[in-house]
Amino acid sequence: MNSHLKHDLEKLKDGLMKVATAVEENMLKSVKALGALSTELGSDVVTTDMEIDKMEVEMEEECLKVLALHQPVASDLRFVITVLKINNELEHIGDMAANIARRISFLKKEPISTIPFDLGDMTSKTITMLKHAIDSFMSENEYLALEVCTADEEVDSVMRECFLKSEELLKKGEGMGCVNYLLVCKSLERIADLCTNIAEDVIYMRHSVIVRHNLQAAIRALKEDS
């Protein structure tokens, strides 16, 4: 391979790793802030998210530069396109982490006797999905990516339970506190969706099959190539 292209592709991978690390750390910080109902830590998350936004733009510019200068094809093209897409998904995850952090001040204003949902379970599932999604890209492991896609269904199921529980609580007269927690759950569920998108991008990068909206296609693609 052209050594310039090789160098630039490695640079993209390193750059995306930095964005992913920043997003993952910020997400963990956001969950910590939520647990402690710390507005101070929450505002840290919001500030870091603005830095992540800048990193995303820089990464996108790097990808465009590689596309324009090297006009990559085949596996190299799929790699650059995947970086471009994952970069965007990560930035959205960053936004969701900031949304959770922003919710903290509302939760403090509208306290609730007991947290209505099993937030611990949902956050741990979502954090695992994020870690695995990032690892699947870094190690080019489409099987790990498939695990992420499958795990999304579990988070969706928790989210459905949260809705039902909220409905009950609202009927019993619980106010905004309940709604605020529901919005936190919605952000977590959205993060899980974005992790699934990353995993689908990894499957595309490895197998050149677009499996979005179709988990069965992902499973078939992996079976055919294994």
Partner: peptide, 18 residues
Amino acid sequence: KIFTNPKKQETNDYITGR
């Protein structure tokens, strides 16, 4: 197809300049 998803590894390696 050849330039996005070649079936053979040799094709991929050649068109990507490996």
